[in-house]
């Protein structure tokens, strides 16, 4: 278990570094794919199989395929080199530090929970006991269509708007 966690975590970190460090844009995108697959493996070790499958289908399988497609065909920024003290690099660095603080706080929280063996607070709808009883997909589906119905429908509306917008943009260009 921990061996697999270690391997997947190492791959995830190396791939994430690869996204930033790689000289060629296509390699960055492929490193991001590797990172997403490694994250899916981490989800599996947490017994979140549905999330793992969706992570691969949606992100690695659909979104990144389009990224790779566009990069390979148009190769944007192939000649562009980053200068280390550029404004966007500094802003990105600050954001990374802030994010690290948040993640570290959560991790320490998790460590203390694991050390004491107790979880203080309410068991959510995805508590392992409940998921084991009803099955993963069933639990998730039930929660999506009851507790989280409004956010779920709102996000589907957002996707619909994006799709309509894409159709509109492609239409207008053809007319002119």
């Amino acid at each position: 278990m921990s061996v697999i966690f270690g391997l997947a975590a190492a791959v995830a970190v190396v791939a994430a570094l690869g996204v930033v460090v790689a000289q060629r844009t296509l390699y960055s995108a492929l490193a991001l794919v590797a990172n997403m697959v490694a994250l899916a493996v981490l989800f599996l070790t947490l017994d979140a199989q549905f999330l793992a499958a969706v992570q691969i289908i949606v992100y690695a399988g659909a979104v990144m395929v389009l990224f790779v497609f566009i990069i390979a065909l148009l190769s944007p920024g192939a000649q562009e080199r980053l200068h280390p003290l550029e404004a966007r690099v500094l802003i990105g660095g600050l954001a990374a530090v802030a994010f690290t603080v948040v993640v570290a706080r959560l991790t320490l929280n998790g460590v203390s929970v694991a050390a004491s063996g107790r979880f203080y607070g309410r068991l959510g709808p995805f508590a392992p006991v409940l998921v084991d009883r009803h099955g993963q997909v069933q639990t998730l589906g039930e929660q999506l269509f009851t507790t989280f119905l409004l956010p779920f429908e709102l996000s589907s509306l957002l996707l619909l708007v994006a799709a309509v917008g894409a159709v509109y943009l492609s239409r207008r260009r053809r007319a002119s």
Binding site: Q49, A60, G61, A62, V65, Q136, V137
Partner: peptide
């Protein structure tokens, strides 16, 4: 024997696109 068997297959076969494209 996983309870997302079908989704797993969809996920893995969607990786095959990379092989062909790359």
């Amino acid at each position: 024997n996983v309870n997302i068997g079908l989704l797993y297959i969809l996920a893995v076969t969607s990786m095959g696109v990379y092989a062909i494209f790359l």
